[in-house]
Design a binder for these strands. Sequence first.
DNA 1: CTAATAGTGTCTATTAGACAGTATGTT
DNA 2: AACATACTGTCTAATAGACACTATTAG
Lengths: 275, 275
Amino acid sequence: MEKKEYQSEEEFLKNYDSSQFEKLSLTTDTLIFSVADEETGNYRKLPEKKFSVLLVKRDSYPFKDKWCLPGGFMRMEETIDEAAKRILKVETNLQDIYMEQLYTFGELDRDPRMRIVSVSYIALVDKNRLKEHLSKNASWFQMDILEEEREIQVTFDNGNESFSITIEKKLKNPTSDRYEYIVKKNTHLAFDHAKVIVCGVERLKNKVGYTDIVFNMMPKYFTLGELQQVYEVILGKKLLDPAFRRMIQDKVEKTDKIKTGGGHRPSVLFQYKKK
Amino acid sequence: MEKKEYQSEEEFLKNYDSSQFEKLSLTTDTLIFSVADEETGNYRKLPEKKFSVLLVKRDSYPFKDKWCLPGGFMRMEETIDEAAKRILKVETNLQDIYMEQLYTFGELDRDPRMRIVSVSYIALVDKNRLKEHLSKNASWFQMDILEEEREIQVTFDNGNESFSITIEKKLKNPTSDRYEYIVKKNTHLAFDHAKVIVCGVERLKNKVGYTDIVFNMMPKYFTLGELQQVYEVILGKKLLDPAFRRMIQDKVEKTDKIKTGGGHRPSVLFQYKKK
DNA sequence: CTAATAGTGTCTATTAGACAGTATGTT
DNA sequence: AACATACTGTCTAATAGACACTATTAG
């Protein structure tokens, strides 16, 4: 290929041949998390909260009949963020929800069809939107996360079907907080989505500590008890009431609404307060 | 396009036409940060530390003669991480250094030639490697960062040339820590690299607080004074000695080596201690 | 001796963890 | 009345911020 000398940027661009570099397809995959209520038999008890993720059943090859994250191919006329939003709407009917970029996965063999790089996103919705009309292949799965030493086990359950994955975490570098995720067991999830889910769960756990993103999973009005449950479910541990209330005191404001009917003392409803 | 029914995954893959989706080029761009010594006239004083980034002068269109981050096109037979490493070696002769993925930029107009998505990386090297033989277009720039309210100004200086950029930070969402970066002033940097640099600088500032990545910018043996200077330069503020020493006490271990010759009390040399 | 960094002791203010107690609905 | 959650007071432990002091070299 002969190198030509151009006199200006305009001239260069007019003559530019964009076919000279190898090209590939780019997809977005989105982790939609929510914290769902699960009714307990006891009329006094608050419904238990369950950390949930939305999965879609593949109806074609590759990975036919396996579960995967809602995702699809980016188009040339849209940004990556726009692609993620569009695809989410098409696949799940969800829109206007909190989204942020998680990580870009580019292993060679992550898709058996061809070389595909995937930009993953985290999306958060409040539990009321679990009931919105989803497209027919989408389903919410409750997750139970068991983390011990360097191994993470996640059990998924959508009421009908249940399965689990096991992932080993390995620090990429002793100085950093970046992990390599090694799939030890995975029978039901397509592509590298087992890794993506674990990566997203860990990121969410971390971010809950230093941002207000949990409020994207809350309805407009909520009690502090409910809010605390959501934190507890994401962090996977119980929190002490006074410490929790101190921590969130500047993030919320009291409303004049009250929630009654619980078989116990009524609770004041709060709402999110921006800083 | 007629939809065919396949009997198995193998059969499907054999018949798969990968040309049906639009494709694009993917590049990696790497922020290589270091903290350089700058000699002061005073024989007693420690050399001042300067936060530095490696830039490359473009020798062809587009953005001919502008500065940019070392980067290039990913190939089909390598992962994104591998591409970033390969390109770094070619463009700067640096290898075996700490690298981590930063963010994936995919605005429509970030490259005037065609649609290109770029996966950016952060790389860290210690000051001694500043002197390694760089390729002819590469140059280290000292950065002075001025952050006030929502505006960030960065001044770049490589000894020969000096310029500055101004970027406005805007929270994407009140609940999160993700910013949109709006370029207010930029005369010397190519593509969207002004944004990438600011994004990387902020990420580094944050990560310094909760990881040990600074040690990737340190030589094997260092004094606690030098280490403190590096933290101070990255964070952009002075730290109190006792607090600093408390903070790093479990991250370092004493050696039997001592640094003398400074016109003041000699200092014990330490090294990084993995957890 | 002096300027400069090296290194430590300690007081205080703030924050985090823990526990215990009171309050108030529904059935 | 009993249960379950709502909500608060307070003690203590741990941590962070601030200052002051001593130590030790080259010139």
